Structures are given as C-alpha cells and as structure tokens.
Simulated scan of single mutants.
Amino acid sequence: MGVAAEQAGEIGPPVKKGPLVKRQSAWTRATHWAWAISLFFLLVSGLQIFNAHPRLYIGQQSGFEFDNSVLSIGAVRKPDGSVGGVTTLMGQQFDTTGVLGYSGPPGREQVRAFPSWITMPSYQDLATGRVVHFFFGWILVTTMLIWFVASLLNGHLRRDIVPTGADMRKLPGDIADHARFQFRHGRHYNALQKLSYGMVLLILCPLMVLTGLTMSPGMDAAWPWLVDVFGGRQTARTIHFGVMVLLVLFFIVHVAMVVLSGPFNNLRSMITGKYRIDPEDRA
C-alpha cells in the first residue's frame, strides 16, 4: 500500500502549461537578427581598427607629445628579457600577457592589442577592417530607422520598450526574482527587460552611431557641431569604445538570461513570434 501511495505521489498531477501567444512581430524579429549580425561584424572589425592605434584619449588631439591617454594596450620587455602584454588604464598598469598586448600560440606570439581570433581579418589589415566596419555600420543605421518607425506604428515602442510608472514600481521585485533565478513568462516584457532594452535601443546604439560619425572627416565637414558635442574626435573615439564594452556586457547577460529562462521558448519567440506564457498570465 505504501509503495502504491509512493508511486501515486511520484506521478502527481500533470504540469499545466500556459498558452502560446503572439509576442513578437515580424518587424521586431527581422530587426533583432539584423542587429545581432551587424553588431558582431562591427565588433570584430572595430577591434581590428583599434589595433592600428591601441590607445584612447580625451580631447581633440593625440600623439606622443600629449599626456591625455586614458587607455593603452601594448607590450613591454621584462627584466628577464621576455616580452609581455601590458594594459594601462587611467595610469594603472596590468599584466595582460596572453590576452591583451602580447598573445598567440606558444612560440608564435605577436605584439598586438587584441588577439587575432577576435579581429576581422585575423591579421593586421586596417583597410579591410574599415571597409567591413563602415558596411555593417550603415546596415545598423538602416535597421535602427526601420525598427523605430515600425515600433512607433505597431505600438511596440510604447508597449514594450518605454517603462511606465507601474513598471518602475515592480522593478525591485523583478530584480529580486532574477537574483533568485525565478523567471516569469508574461505576455509583455517585465520592468527589468524594458529598462535594459530601452537603454540599448534608445541610448547606447544611437550613441554608438553618433560617436562613429564624429570620427569621420566627411561628417565633421557636414556636421561640425558633432565634434563640439562630444568634446573632440578623440573623446568621441573613447566614448565609442566604452559603448562597445557596454554592448558586449549586455550581450553576455542577455544570452545568459535566454538560457536560464528557457532557451527554446525564447528562440521560438524570436523566430516564429510565438511565446508560451505562464498559466496565471492569461490576462
């Protein structure tokens, strides 16, 4: 009798699933994947361009005679005669041998800021890096414009991106749930998602585009006020690099959340638009 009861307890009631709902429009899905591809190629080509002059400055001018560098990645010869990578951030030096400054397979190490496996091309080729970077930069700009117009027309921007007062009141609870790895699957984005997506789509991506345009001599001639807005071309380059770091961090967290909260459900949402919500979220 005990065995039967135990077996019955093991079977238990079936897990109740929520309904499948249409969560993502075709415009949102298409621009999402266009962004993902564009940002990947912008990253690897941008690091290729950075390797040509692996220093960041604040201000309008740069060079050996100026002391306005905030970041540099290079190599030094150590007292024992070996070569090592060193990264200097705000005057503080860090040994980054094997990762930044000096890296590569044993016996074939190279002096280069970022390693070959993360740049396009893998070898040093500034001209090709610029061609790839500019090409996908304009794809990113076009995608942003398409997304913005479509999101205004179908309500996605108002409904899913811009947080409301009610969303902000729920923010502490959403943060606590994420910290405990308790994820709710609702018809609409939660407060934490709205804030993070809004930050990326409405602040970081436009800032990336504007600072990129500021570094272009052609755009400086057409829009000279851009240089003044960002405090000089070198400051714009530093901001551009900083935004890249923030976008990479967002990507890492974003992928982690997709995996932890249900990769199949999330990927289905971004491929077919269908998303399975929790039973209690039918309303």
Rank of each mutant, 00 (worst) to 15 (best):
G186E: 15
Q24F: 12
V209D: 09
G9F: 12
L126I: 07
T96R: 06
G218Y: 14
V227N: 12
G104N: 02
V243D: 10
A5M: 15
S216Q: 15
T211K: 05
Q24K: 10
N154Y: 03
M244E: 10
M90C: 13
F40Y: 11
V243Y: 03
S38R: 01
Y123W: 08
V200D: 07
V76F: 10
D278L: 03
K78S: 05
I118L: 07
A30P: 00
L171Q: 02
S82D: 11
T211G: 07
F250A: 07
D167G: 07
A26I: 13
R23L: 03
W147M: 10
M1C: 15
H53R: 09
R237F: 06
D67H: 02
T143I: 03
V76M: 07
Y57I: 00
W33H: 01
S261A: 08
F241P: 12
G198W: 14
A4D: 15
F66L: 12
V83S: 06
I58F: 11
A34L: 11
G242N: 10
F134D: 07
A191I: 06
F250W: 15
T31W: 00
E10I: 14
G81K: 04
R237N: 09
I11L: 14
A222F: 15
V3N: 13
L145P: 03
G212L: 11
L153C: 04
V209F: 13
V15A: 07
F241L: 11
D125A: 00
K17S: 08
D174V: 12
G46C: 04
R130N: 06
A191G: 12
H178F: 13
S103W: 00
D281Q: 15
S45Y: 08
L226G: 11
V141I: 12
R187I: 02
T96C: 03
G137T: 04
L195P: 13
G74K: 00
E109T: 03
S261V: 05
W27K: 02
D228K: 14
Q92C: 00
Q234S: 11
R233K: 15
P121F: 00
C205G: 09
L20F: 05
R187E: 14
T164S: 15
A166W: 09
T96S: 09
I73F: 01
M270W: 05
I49L: 13
M144P: 05
L249S: 11
T28Q: 03
R158L: 05
S45C: 06
P13T: 06
F66N: 08
V253P: 14
I73K: 04
Q24G: 01
A30H: 01
F50T: 03
V83T: 14
D177I: 00
M144V: 10
M144K: 09
S82T: 12
Y189R: 11
V255Q: 14
G2T: 14
D167Q: 10
W35E: 01
I37V: 13
K16C: 06
L152N: 09
P263M: 08
A176F: 07
S25R: 02
I203Y: 10
T28K: 03
T143N: 11
T143A: 10
G9H: 09
S261Y: 02
C205R: 01
F148C: 05
A127V: 12
T128W: 06
Y57K: 08
V253K: 15
H133P: 05
